[in-house]
Design a binder for these strands. Structure first.
Length: 264
DNA sequence: GACGATGTTGGCAC
DNA sequence: GGTGCCAACATCGT
């Protein structure tokens, strides 16, 4: 479900509620997505305060006081709901003085993790796409020989892009998803850098894309799905040239592109 | 009812 | 070390 713009939206919707609040109680189901023992995680969280909540790539990091981290990754179908309903797919509930934080995830691809230190997966993330300079971005890509879309999805290369925004950025830059990274010209890579930053900024402004069930912590859907130019538009006309949008597979992921606007 | 698709990523093979 | 494939899971559309 959630890529950078969706996770950013969830974090922004939680920021007014969480910082400063003390965790009165924590309850976890015994499910694979919790990295800890449920009882140990609950015991570790009880009594601690949330000092801050921030996004790192697609991870949500809550810094605690006394020190520690509670880390959430929403996977494909994870939701963090403020005062949300507890249901069949609820795996965790944190109770505060002034509300509850409910984690729900039907497919269980998400991750919940209490940790004393920042886990390696977070340390190994690549740069933030909204912060990386054009020069650095071009230099990094020039070192790699992967197909460009696979590289954009690699979180250790760049943090935060997923299937939707990789397709949308490649379309805006006019680059074929199977293009070999190091063979692209500097000019085209400069265009890709700009396209990534534009599409992410616009998607954040639209509060993310709600394809099926994505919502922020207040249960609000995003609107950016209405601005998608290629993602899930297979068979429809290209908004730029009218050619028929195609779908193929790259790294087992559905990949949408315009065969006329995105030359290899 | 079966089959294939779905916003992710980590582990394994080459 | 870089790259690519598959599995983990539930649900929905054809």
């Amino acid at each position: 479900m959630p890529e950078l713009p969706e996770v950013e939206t969830v974090v922004r919707s939680l920021a007014p509620h969480l910082p400063g609040q003390r965790i009165r109680n924590a309850e976890f189901q015994r499910v694979r997505l919790l990295r800890n023992d449920p009882d140990e995680a609950a015991a570790a969280l009880r009594g601690r305060r949330i000092r801050s909540i921030e996004r790192r790539g697609k991870f949500i990091v809550m810094t605690l006081d006394p020190p520690g981290y509670f880390i959430v990754h929403l996977g494909m179908t994870g939701k963090l709901l403020w005062n949300g309903d507890v249901g069949k797919h609820t795996h965790a509930v944190l109770t505060f003085d002034r509300g509850t934080l409910v984690y729900t995830d039907p497919r269980k691809f998400g991750r919940l993790h209490y940790s004393e230190a920042l886990p390696p997966a977070l340390e190994e993330l690549g740069p933030e796409p909204l912060l990386i300079s054009q020069e650095q971005f071009i230099a990094d890509i020039k070192k790699r020989g992967a197909r460009l879309k696979a590289l954009l999805l690699d979180q250790t290369f760049l943090r935060g892009l997923g299937n939707i925004y990789a397709d949308e950025a490649l379309f805006r830059a006019g680059i074929h998803p199977l293009a070999v990274s190091r063979r692209l010209t500097r000019a085209r890579l400069a265009g890709l850098h700009a396209a990534i930053q534009q599409v992410l900024a616009e998607a954040i402004a639209g509060k993310g894309s709600s394809i099926a069930d994505y919502v922020d912590s207040d249960g609000q859907r995003g609107s950016f799905q209405h601005q998608h130019r290629v993602y899930r538009r297979t068979g429809e006309p290209c908004v730029q040239c009218g050619a028929t949008i195609r779908r193929t597979l790259v790294t087992q992921r559905g990949t949408h592109y315009c065969p006329h606007c995105q030359k290899r």
